[in-house]
Design a protein around this nucleic acid. Structure first.
Lengths: 327, 327
DNA sequence: ATAAATATGTCAACCGGTTGACATACAGAT
DNA sequence: ATCTGTATGTCAACCGGTTGACATATTTAT
């Protein structure tokens, strides 16, 4: 550890270890990477020098040569959302257990940010990317000779997508409301122009409604959408929100209007994250298998990284209906 | 873009751009980094070649030479917690705006993981680290010639710590309960052996209690702690939980026991994250200035990265009392 | 006409590791 | 005595950028 000037400290490098151990740089590298023949005596000398100098190999230099960074890029709208927070937690966790690190990107649902992040991750030579963000028209995902997996988002024809069984979730949610006697059921969802399997929640809702001779009505998330919904549908008695935060907002607005839940209005959400279960345990919801989604996404990504082939593109994992006190 | 074999695609590199533009590699580098004198004609030729080949500079190679990665390491317990999720969102956001990327580490409050992450981040040559995790006895943070900032955690004598004004928060929370007429107020907090400014919440609670001739009683988070609290204190009429999730659990247990809130029992939490405000808006809480904390932490980190000096170690940012319906 | 300043671009070393090719030494086999 | 195989270690090129030193024009000043 030689000082170069007051501010800059020269890091210990492989050559320093070699000098201290009295061997060549190659030998040190061989010892550290367990390659070729090395005598026990040499091995020990090297390890001692490493300890003594507290040597930390420079992964940047290593990555440059071996052309692998052991870094996975994650592109999601925001960690400030219980679902993504939980998902990212698991993704990072699994990566760590496999020796990979994670570069985090909050795209905030903005196409421009997502494009920039995608480029940035490539410049940083990440080994793969898992994206669950907004995606309309990000043609950059095509022709990307880079391992990719989408979560709840179609990125391109041949990029695998992992999601919960959105259709089943939508079906079960809608059926629950109907079974509980709701007659005027409204669905709140994101923009259908986003190409996501989450649209299947809406499809299922509409199918089930029609099956039961009800008239489906879907509101698209937007400004004051919940107030408008109540204003325009004073007799609404069932709401299926496509995520728990929206459901919570619905409940709050209902309270404000003195609408009794579940007496006059039944509400069911979607996601069922751990945070929601703690903060709003009474909410009925469709719980996504977050950990399983993360597991599968990583598994599919690793397959690509290791050059193994896999023809299945769409993967659906079973959801769980949680009957709370809001239905 | 030459194919080497079926699986491996050779990336476009600087030399390819140089060839295409009919100049040397140095010239291309100069153009891309705006250094030295370059004629407009040359500049344009280079840019055309870059476009044509869709050239993405290899940041790894660049980092190796300039000894800077523009990567910041974040070590926090878990993104699956509204407070950290929101904090990490802002941290990433600010970093991005400054041209830095973020390597995410979920230490899960485990000392061994935190140590491993710290080493890993160093091997990856990150430019700095912001940590808000468990820290007892991580002496590795000392003698780290690496820009560091702690959030709500003392890492080492001379590493800056940013936190909300925990003492003021604890004071305001306790006073609110007293003002509302509570006589038997109990505080729930994490282990006091963790060296965090969050302990000041407890200190303030105890000080205010004594000031008012009340007997302070603090429970440390653990298994079935909330049930035990109720069992052991049937007459408790005020609970100050050191975070909102705990407060939510208290509320749930109270409901189970048919204890009316806020009639028989008043509850106040701490954090006031956006998620809590949506899912449990009625909860009284002390709101931390999450964005401001992130802003300041990054500012302090950048100062270190840029070699500017700063003598202040502890930084406290004002909290906001949110009076909800649980008090 | 000549020196000095301004443009423009090339060469080659360097960042800190990794690894194929090669040198040397020695034991055992023929 | 010679060959083969096993051990042990060194040399130097390489990964893909960056940059100081230097060469060559071209323009301006004296």
């Amino acid at each position: 550890m030689r000082k170069i000037n007051e501010n800059e400290i020269q890091k210990v490098k492989l050559g320093d270890v070699a000098d201290k151990a009295g061997v060549s740089r190659t030998t040190v590298s061989r010892v550290l990477n367990n390659r070729g023949y090395i005598s026990d005596k040499t091995r020990q000398k090297v390890h001692e020098a490493v300890e003594l100098l507290n040597y930390q190999p420079n992964e940047i230099a290593r990555s440059l040569f071996i052309k692998k960074t052991y870094i996975i890029g994650l592109i999601f709208p925001t960690t400030n959302n219980p679902f993504y927070g939980q998902l990212i937690f698991h993704l990072e966790n699994i990566c760590e257990s496999l020796g990979y690190r994670v570069l985090l990107c909050n795209s905030q649902g903005r196409e421009d940010k997502e494009k920039d992040y995608l480029k940035m991750l490539q410049r940083h030579q990440v080994d793969g990317i898992i994206a669950g963000a907004h995606n309309r028209g990000i043609e950059e995902y095509n022709n990307q000779h880079l391992p990719l997996v989408g979560i709840d988002r179609y990125l391109s024809k041949n990029i695998p997508v992992v999601s919960s069984d959105n259709y089943d979730g939508g079906k079960k949610a809608t059926r629950l409301l109907i079974d509980k006697g709701c007659k005027q059921i409204i669905h709140i969802n994101g923009s259908p122009s986003l190409e996501t399997p989450a649209n299947l929640r809406r499809e299922a809702y509409e199918d089930v409604m029609k099956e039961n001779q009800f008239h489906p009505r879907t509101y698209i998330i937007g400004d004051n959408i919940i107030e408008r919904l109540f204003d325009e549908n004073p007799n609404v008695d069932g709401i299926f929100a496509s995520d728990d935060l929206i459901a919570a907002n619905v409940i709050r607005e209902a309270k404000r209007r003195n609408i009794n839940i579940p007496g006059d209005l039944k509400v069911i959400g979607y996601d069922g994250t751990e945070t929601t279960r703690i903060l709003l345990p009474e909410l009925s919801t469709i719980q996504q298998p977050v950990k399983e989604i993360a597991d599968l996404a990583i598994k599919l990504l690793m397959k690509q990284i290791n050059g193994e082939s896999e023809s299945q593109i769409e993967w659906k994992l079973p959801i769980k209906l949680i009957k709370g006190e809001t239905t």
